[in-house]
Structures are given as C-alpha cells and as structure tokens.
Design a protein around this nucleic acid. Structure first.
Lengths: 211, 211
DNA sequence: TAGATTGTTAATCGATTAACAATC
DNA sequence: TAGATTGTTAATCGATTAACAATC
C-alpha cells in the first residue's frame, strides 16, 4: 500500500507535522490540501501527492482529519517511540544538546554525555562520563542513537568505535562524511554548511542589486 | 557566463569546498572530476556539470587546479568576505554558537549576544547584552547577519524587529517558518527536523528487517 | 602526436504540477 | 442531489547522467 517514498517527501514531513500541531492548537479539526498548502507555501497537488505516497489519509469531499494526520505522521517518522541518545563530545554543541529540554516531547531522551575531559560543569540530569566508561555504559544500557559532537578529526574514529559497540544509528554534527557500513543509519547536520548557504544567498542578493 | 544555478548545486558547494581543503592538505595540486566524484560519492558528470554552471574552472586534458577551485568556491559562497553576526537568544544553542571558535576561519565574527536575561555567565570575548540595548547596538555597529536562537514563540517578533533595524540576513534556528519580505534573506537550520529524519530512517530500516 | 580530461549537448530519470474521475 | 475535495493518472519541469567533440 505504501509506495516508494523519496527523501524529498520525507524531508517535508517534519514541517507538515509542526504546522499540523499548530493548526490543531488553533482549533482546526479538519484541514484540506488547499489549506495545508497555503500554510506550508507549497501546492495543494504536492500535499495530496505526498500523503498519497503513504497510502492517503484523507476523505474525499471532506479533507484530512488533523488528529489522524498528526498520529500517522508521528508514526511514519517513528517519533511515537522512545529513543535513547548518548552524546559523544562535551564541547559547546554537545553540552547545548545535553541541556536541551525540548527533546522530551518527541520521545528523545539523552541518557549520557561522554568526553575525554570530565573536569567541567555538570549538565542538569545528564551524567558526564569519561570516554573510558563508554564500553561499559553501552553494554549495560540500551542506547538507540549516538550523537557525534566531537572535533572533525576524531569523528571518524568515534563513529567506528560506536558501530563496533553495536549502535547502528548516528546523528552526526561533525563536518565530515562518515564512511560506515550500509547497515548503519547516519543523518548529518552541518551548521557550517548551512551558514555557507546563507552566505551564498547574501552574496547573490548583493550581486543582483549591483547590476 | 554564469548560468542559472539551482539550489541543489549550491548545497553541494560546501562539501566540495571541505573536501578540496582536505585534498590540498594531502598534497594534491590538481584534481580530476573523476577523483573528486570518488571522494564526494557522486558522479564525475555531476562534478563537471556543477562547475560548468559557474563557468568552468578546469583545463581540458589536465583537470582542475585545487587552489583555483578553492579560491573560486570561497568567492562564490562569499566566505572570502567578512560577516559580522549578532546572536539573539542566549539559551543553550545561542551560547554554544557564541562560544564556537571555528567561525573565524571562514570570516564570520560574533560581535554580540542578546537576551532578556543578562544575569548569566559571560562568553569569552563576546559581550552579553540586554535586548533593550539592541537598537542602540545595531545603529552604532555594522551587523551583517542576525542569528535567531530564541524560543519559537517569539522568533517571529524578533525577526520583524531585526528587519525593522535594517538587518536583512537571518540565520534561523527556531523551528518556525518566518514570514518576511522578499528582500530579506533567510536560511533555516532545524535540529528537530534533522532528528526526525534520522528517526524516519531508523524506523524504515527496522521495518525492512522485519519483513 | 596520443592520451587525458574538460566543456557542452542530449538522454534519462525523478519530482512537481495539472487535470479530472471517484466518492464522500 | 450538488458541492467539495481527495485519489490517482498524465503532463511538465528540473536535475542527473551519459555521451562525445573540443582541446590541452
């Protein structure tokens, strides 16, 4: 029933989800593809095509039930299930993530933060452990996702280490392309790449004005 | 000479740039589209097509000069010019960005951090100022980019405020779609969206195994 | 010159948009 | 029933890949 879903569609799901939560808060019980398209600034056709890829959640002549849509998207994204994270690298970003309170509402829980240096302030509620304790910890706790927030030069080694400990899901903040087996799931997020793209857009805009 | 460049191409430029720096460090003076394709895990044809969009930097029969490519890409991305940033919102992420030392090498400089609460530890080298001082600061300093790291519910207001102060470039970390005039350049980066996509991939992988 | 490799056009593939029949 | 709106196929558009002539 579910057709092949492209990554282009998947990447829109978080925005659908966020906007649907917002619509529900505003009191909407149902929403049409037209309305959702307007909110998302895409075409109604794309909205229908996107949901069609997952089997279609709507009712002809009526629209889409907001609650049902939210439940389904949460299920497709897998955020209706609990995920336990460990963060490797207690630098600026690692510490920021460890202290972020917003993960809980999406069923993500940070259960430990690792670094070679444990002589630094604690993060409320998240133990800061030494890298030497990593093996033990992973063997005695269920860990779903490892977050890499180390320096780039050690990221590849860390990734290898993590995978050897049977953690097959990596959220990578280091600006390197990790080379892992195909049974390992990696999602990269790169602040510098995002900033470069912003810089490009600024540059283009400047040039277009100068003409 | 420069053809229309799609965002798909632009989004690959940071990776080209990063990998070229790496190749240079390894001692490469020239690189072929084939070699670069191998490193980037894309096709050689795409490499040539991408650079062709910017007018072509190569030499037939030889390849691409690594230095020249790096200089050109840096110029296209605009990271050869200085950008001065202010960060609005001294929460976990805002403070992490303010303390990040890696911006300097790409000519980005954080010149101030703003929050409604200034009763919190300082960040080395970056003044933490009250939101009440924002107008004054912006009027007396050159600010190229405003970074929004506030809570979502105030992000729209902050964006509006920023734009009214004539800052037309926004790097937005809040998971909201900012609605601004078309002369304002916005680049969104969403950690939650990235994490959702990771969750999706994990979920898919799990399902594919269960079959 | 012969070999290598780009520049550039053409072919293919995939994603988006349009159209409309199905149906609530 | 008539109107609204989805589900679904077809048409269009854009991005990627293939091919090869140009040229260093």
């Amino acid at each position: 029933m579910i057709k092949h879903v492209s990554l282009a569609v998947v990447k829109r799901l978080p925005r659908y989800y966020r906007n649907l939560l917002h619509l529900r808060k505003q009191g909407f019980l149902k929403v049409s593809s037209g309305k959702l398209a307007e909110v998302m600034d895409i075409t109604a056709s794309q909205v229908r095509q996107d949901f069609y890829a997952f089997g279609g959640f709507g009712q002809q002549g009526y629209g889409y039930d907001v609650d049902k849509l939210i439940t389904n998207i949460a299920n497709i994204l897998g955020i209706d299930e609990k995920h336990r994270l460990i963060i490797i690298g207690a630098g600026n970003i690692g510490r920021a993530l460890a202290g972020y309170q917003g993960f809980a509402k999406d069923n993500f829980e940070v259960i430990a933060l690792f670094d070679i240096n444990v002589n630094q302030p604690d993060i409320a509620g998240v133990p800061l452990l030494s890298m030497t304790e990593l093996d033990d910890f992973v063997n005695n706790n269920e860990v779903d996702i490892a977050v890499i927030t180390t320096q780039s030069k050690v990221a590849a080694d860390i990734a290898h280490k993590i995978v050897s400990l049977k953690i097959k899901n990596i959220w990578n903040f280091a600006p390197v392309d990790l080379d892992v087996d195909e049974d390992v799931v990696v999602e990269n997020i790169s602040m510098s790449e995002s900033l470069y793209v912003l810089s490009y857009k600024i540059n283009q805009y400047k040039k277009s004005k100068d003409e």
